[in-house]
């Protein structure tokens, strides 16, 4: 997923959320599609935001998998909550102590991402977020542009060169 496609998803999902909100102003209240638009829009906007922050010139690379995973967890969890029938109170089925729909929401949406999303961040940190070379390049550029550095314009050129060199 590139920055451009992340931005496109961000815009589309924001429009979906706006449409869901807008539909609540209709005389008969929100139509049946409104919670779906809000649910899918919310799942998409959060994943697109992560992808926008993570994407470099080559896209999100290996992070595509965890991002797809978190979208499935969020969108799937919301869909399950919207679709699963209520539990029979006389003979309740419980998953880890909760009715199925509540368990999907609590353990799926609220807990499952903890087991892979922060790990994906940590395991790709050097390669995708901030390696030693990235840090050195930023610090070199900062030194070149610092007040008192001689010849401001060449310094700006050097910073521009550093931008060009960024992966």
């Amino acid at each position: 997923m590139s920055k451009r496609s992340s931005l496109a998803v961000l815009v589309v999902s924001t429009v979906a959320i706006a449409a869901a909100y807008g539909s609540a102003f209709l005389p008969d209240g929100p139509p049946r599609w409104a919670p779906w638009a809000l649910a899918m829009g919310t799942a998409a906007i959060m994943v697109a935001s992560m992808a926008l922050g993570a994407a470099r010139r080559g896209g999100v690379g290996r992070l595509a998998l965890p991002f797809a995973g978190v979208f499935l967890v969020l969108a799937g969890g919301f869909a399950a909550a919207l679709l699963l029938p209520p539990t029979d109170p006389r003979d309740p089925t419980l998953w880890l102590g909760l009715p199925p729909a509540a368990a999907v929401v609590m353990y799926g949406i609220g807990l499952l991402p903890l087991f892979f999303l922060p790990l994906a961040y940590a395991l790709t940190f050097d390669e995708m977020t901030l390696g030693e070379a990235d840090l050195a390049r930023v610090r070199d550029a900062a030194r070149a542009l610092a007040p008192g550095a001689s010849h401001a314009e060449p310094a700006r050129e050097s910073a521009r060169a550093a931008v060009e060199a960024a992966p």
Partner: peptide, 11 residues
């Protein structure tokens, strides 16, 4: 909260 810290870290 299961997602926001990672989202904030990347963004």
């Amino acid at each position: 909260a299961a997602v926001t810290s990672s989202m904030g870290a990347w963004m």
